[in-house]
Write a protein that binds this DNA or RNA. Structure first.
Lengths: 338, 338
DNA sequence: ATGAAAGCGCTAACAT
DNA sequence: ATGTTAGCGCTTTCAT
């Protein structure tokens, strides 16, 4: 069987190439009979348009790229990127887009890949995640004029993004602790190279201040989102005699829980804990974690939809969105609200 | 600045399009001087060949596809696919290939996507993971003549695959239990729609038989690779009064540990446990899990290399590889060897 | 060693 | 409503 092309379908249907092309693209200006006939032939033969030819001739490839700029570490340590990928692929499947994945394992990958991504015309647009604050990739992208949506907010007013409202989420978590009467509330921060980690810590501080507590920097320990860093940070915090702790991710909270249990501290009796993310393991932790749920899959899907919207109708004005979070109350803080 | 094409580079270098093309493709038959000059211009301008034009004109797109056929559930429940993706992208980055990701969230995705993947000529070849035994995708792929490498072994002699030696791995784990003197060894199986789950259970049975134990089917409980299914399965197994258990994945083992601890059973004192995978959490479990390590990242990278090899030199004979596993001894079985 | 020229399979004016 | 035609940016004979 020879290769299936528009030409062949045209021949088999007894019309011209253009007409077939119109049918395929669902263009107007095709008579119902002809359309039906052509569709029939396409169905029978199983014709699929050649993607390369399409993107070469037209302006759209129907391919979008997902870049994950994070050095691979947390990619498997945490279900964040898997969930994001799920949300993104869900949406690309729904909208008949193809997804190409760019994963930077190290800095040299980034240097090698980014010019190619930008100038290759392989993708119509990009969803960009895992960048650090001040990541040079973002200005590069802006300058290149390639349409893109950032996952996580950005100061530059030209960039479109989908963010999770980390500040408000963290704030609500810490407010909850305060309402329950905890006085000496520590924090374990995430990797502060990430906007999200900064924002969560900021939410913690705001909550404290808005309730008239002062922020004690010795009660804030930096982690890097790994379970082990949570473990280490908690060991430090124990010595500060906190009565509660806000942990910036469930993954670190699991490590913190381990530190506490190894030190014979009971949660929430000796120390209360709230964290962030609501990963599946949070529910099964001992005790089950009260945590701020963020809709990661939703974020991925929204990023795709936003990018598609930009591709259709132009990038101005930039789209900027913050998705709300939800405090999931379980037993790691003791009270059930108040 | 106008678009950068071969033509433009040719003009700037004072040579013909063909010569530039030869330089770009590292072809022989270009004089050193000319090559240097052209390379200089490319460097200055930041020229990158247009991918679509390339794959339309040539026979290679330098794009490979990764299909994950598994319904999304375990994608984030377990670090398997993230690790596989890491290995694959690591290798595609190294070999200057672009990766497109096809993730089937449900059956209709599969039906919609697979014809497109196959006939689109979007990818040069495919790495296929997450298929079930007797998944219709495999015969479809064979028939379509698209080069592909399956992750996990397959009976059909025409398919190339990279497998982990699950049978031997499971066997060594159970042998270890037997050597330590355990008599009544139960098993928690994975989702038996997967080849890997079947093979692990098979390894368990072989180990038992080869040491003269009989296989007691009431001691085998089926799970589905989730933590919760491990929890449920262990609760059933406790009533069978086993003294040890082989769990087909660390994820399920974590659930099993939870069941045991809720029932006041201590590990390994009351019941010993070996599992499979060696995910990061295995080390931090209580007690740390003795488990069979599989090199998932390696598998992904090998799949890419194998596919590239097939693409270069033809698909015959099929490449069939089984990667070895390694028993990582920690404290969940009590003994330290013997 | 280099250049000229013919496509690859499609889209998108432009005709009719 | 349909057909004709000219590219899109590259690779690849085939000349020279």
């Amino acid at each position: 069987m020879s290769k299936l092309t528009l030409e062949k379908i045209a021949e088999l249907s007894g019309v011209s190439r253009s007409t077939v092309s119109r049918v395929v693209r669902n263009h107007e200006s095709v008579s119902p009979n002809v359309r039906k006939r052509v569709l029939g032939v396409i169905e029978e033969t199983g014709y699929q348009p050649n993607a390369a030819a399409r993107s070469l001739a037209g302006q759209r490839a129907n391919v979008i790229g997902l870049v994950i700029a994070e050095p691979a570490q947390s990619l498997f340590t945490d279900p964040y990127f898997p969930l994001l990928i799920q949300g993104v692929t869900q949406a690309t499947n729904d909208y008949d887009q193809t997804l190409t994945l760019f994963l930077f394992h190290n800095h040299s990958d980034e240097e090698k890949l980014s010019p190619r991504i930008i100038r290759n015309q392989l993708v119509d647009g990009l969803i960009v995640s895992g960048t650090h604050v001040d990541d040079p990739l973002v200005p590069q992208l802006i300058e290149s004029n390639i349409p893109f949506v950032l996952v996580g907010r950005h100061e530059d007013p030209r960039v479109s993004f989908i963010d999770v409202d980390n500040v408000t989420g963290a704030q609500s978590a810490v407010n909850y602790l305060i309402r329950l009467g905890y006085k000496r509330i520590g924090a374990i921060a995430g990797d502060l190279k990430n906007r999200g980690a900064i924002d969560r810590l900021d939410g913690y501080k705001r909550a404290l201040r808005s309730r008239g507590h002062r922020v004690d920097e010795t009660l804030i320990i930096n982690g890097d989102y790994t379970e082990f860093s949570g473990f280490q940070a908690m060991n430090q915090l124990i010595e500060q005699e906190v009565d509660a702790v806000f942990v910036s991710s469930d993954g670190m909270a699991l490590g913190a829980l381990r530190a506490l249990s190894e030190n014979g501290c009971s949660v929430p009796h000796d120390i209360a804990m709230v964290s962030f993310d609501d990963i599946p393991a949070a529910m099964h932790a001992k005790p089950p974690l009260t945590t701020v749920r963020q809709a990661v899959r939703r974020t991925g899907a929204m990023a795709v939809e936003t990018l598609l919207d930009i591709l259709e109708s132009g990038a101005t004005p930039p789209r900027r969105l913050a998705l709300p979070t939800e405090l999931i109350v379980r037993s790691s803080c003791g009270g059930t609200g108040g």
